[in-house]
Nucleic acid binder design. Structure first.
Length: 423
RNA sequence: GGAGGGCUGGCAGAGCGGUUGAAUGCACUGGUCUUGAAAACCAGCGUGGGUUUGUAGCCCACCGUGAGUUCGAAUCUCACGCCCUCCGCCA
């Protein structure tokens, strides 16, 4: 959520900035509602003041043993008027809130202009895409030929966009998770956390998935209104919801491995082959809660932590800055890391690292105590994948295949595979 | 699933329906004292919002959440949520 104050004071300017993301803010409507809110709030508070004052005088009169009937007559119709005013104000504030919750974050000035992912700007390339003297297979062929990757059984068990891994591939999948967590905890200074895979609606409002993106989520049927997490970002970031973090604990750096569940409602035709786009996938996530003036520096650091995973695995990738039209709803700035996939002859997203500034923190009321003022202030939230495990598995299979369809594992994984170097 | 108990400021913990936004203690901040520190003493110390050029003043709201009773609710009623204890079941 944006700061309501800037929406009031610089509405025109905010609308101008939002145009960069192709978001049209109805300035006229907002200004009108805001105007109404102001008068209504003032009159309501005046009535409340009147009620408080008169009630107090009734109490005093009663204590003094005076007749309070005349005073009671005086406030006879006040209750009705006040009730009406309060409910009008409430209604108005709710509709304002609804509008506010639907407004995306303002972009950082460094975000390049652009309409969609085609306009994203490449920042750097790392590593060389491998050259094969044979026709490179994609991960589906490689996995199915070995009998380790099975979409048909998954379809029987559940439906489309699920997979069954078996044998060495299932182990490699697990090994990747261990490798990533160890890297982040041992070298990058993160604390590992284990969190629920189901969350309530408040948490999803906090990080911005609700109310706007409900169709992307799986909701649980039953007595509780719970949702399967679409990313660990939701439970991990919400650890700070309604909390005030003391300065000596800042910055807070969490990493977590969780499954992620996405309905992929809006992408029926895309990536139907393989395990690039599944309803259920594993991800190792990094989340940082930082002091506001340090957030952009932290975004660079966090992105480099994700890059370290790719570098450790020896996978060629590029780093792109998302353009204005492609940055997600809650983010102010996002870097994507895209790994080279020989099977597709292209770079594909494997990590997304974003600075949300105070956008999520305001929704969550996640604050830190600024030692300079002694006051609680909204903190900034940063997160990024480090990495998407399923896609990392794809990258390993496709980049390190040989002409016989064997997979040669990067050195750092050998220990996690019990010494095995080739699958 | 059954039976109880509880949710008050950073923490602990009071609170007859009427100047209670809330005693007291701890913690914290400033000051006095001290060579310095501690102790002692004095003072300050919640959050959000409105108005406003305003970190001034004034006003409003907030004692788990939401409704209700009342001129007036932290205090009474109802519903829900969460926590704790005991019994049952269970990885």
């Amino acid at each position: 959520m944006l700061d309501p104050k800037i929406l009031r004071n610089d509405l025109q300017q905010v609308a101008e900035k939002l145009k960069r993301r192709n978001f049209n803010l109805d300035v006229e409507q907002l200004a009108q509602l805001e105007d109404k809110r102001k008068t209504l709030q003032i009159s309501t508070q005046d009535l409340q003041n009147e009620r408080n004052t008169k009630s107090r005088s009734i109490g005093q009169a009663k204590a003094a043993g005076k007749d309070i009937q005349p005073l009671l007559d005086e406030v006879a119709d006040l209750g009705e008027k006040l009730k009406q005013a309060e409910s009008d104000l409430n209604e108005l504030q709710e509709s304002l809130q609804e509008i506010y919750l639907g407004i995306p974050n303002l972009l950082d000035e460094s975000v390049p202009d652009g309409k969609d992912e085609a306009d994203n700007v490449e920042i750097l390339k790392w590593g060389e895409p491998p050259q094969f003297d044979f026709e490179a297979k994609d991960h589906v062929d490689l996995g199915e030929n070995k009998g380790w990757l099975d979409f048909e059984t998954a379809a029987k068990l559940t439906g489309s966009r699920f997979m069954v891994l078996s044998g060495p591939l299932a182990r490699l999948h697990r090994a990747l998770i261990q490798y990533m967590l160890d890297l982040h905890t041992n070298q990058n200074g993160y604390q590992e956390v284990y969190v629920p895979y189901m969350v309530n609606a408040d948490s999803l409002h906090g990080t911005g998935q609700l109310p706007k993106f409900a169709e992307d989520l799986f909701a649980i049927q039953g007595e509780h209104e719970y949702y399967l997490i679409p990313t660990a970002e939701v439970p991990v970031t919400n650890i700070a919801r309604n909390e005030i973090i003391e300065d000596d604990r800042m910055p807070v750096k969490y990493t977590a491995h969780t499954p992620c569940f996405r309905s992929e409602a809006g992408s029926y035709g895309r990536d139907t082959r393989g395990l690039i786009r599944q309803h259920q996938f594993e991800k190792v996530e990094m989340v940082q809660l930082v002091r506001p003036h340090e957030s952009y520096q932290a975004l660079e650091a966090l992105t480099s932590h994700a890059e370290a995973v790719l570098q450790g695995l020896g996978l060629a990738y590029r780093k792109v800055a998302l353009c204005a039209g492609d940055v997600g709803f809650s983010a102010a700035k996002t870097y994507d890391l895209e790994v080279w996939l020989p099977g597709q002859q292209t770079y594909r997203e494997i990590s997304s690292c974003s600075n949300f500034e105070s956008f999520q923190a305001r929704r969550m009321q996640a604050r830190w105590r600024n030692p300079e003022t002694g006051k609680p202030e909204l903190l900034h939230t940063i997160n990024g994948s480090g990495l998407a495990v399923g896609r990392t598995l794809v990258a390993i299979m496709e980049n390190f295949q040989d002409s016989d369809g064997n997979i040669h594992l990067p050195q750092v994984l050998h220990a996690y595979m019990g010494g095995q170097a080739v699958l």
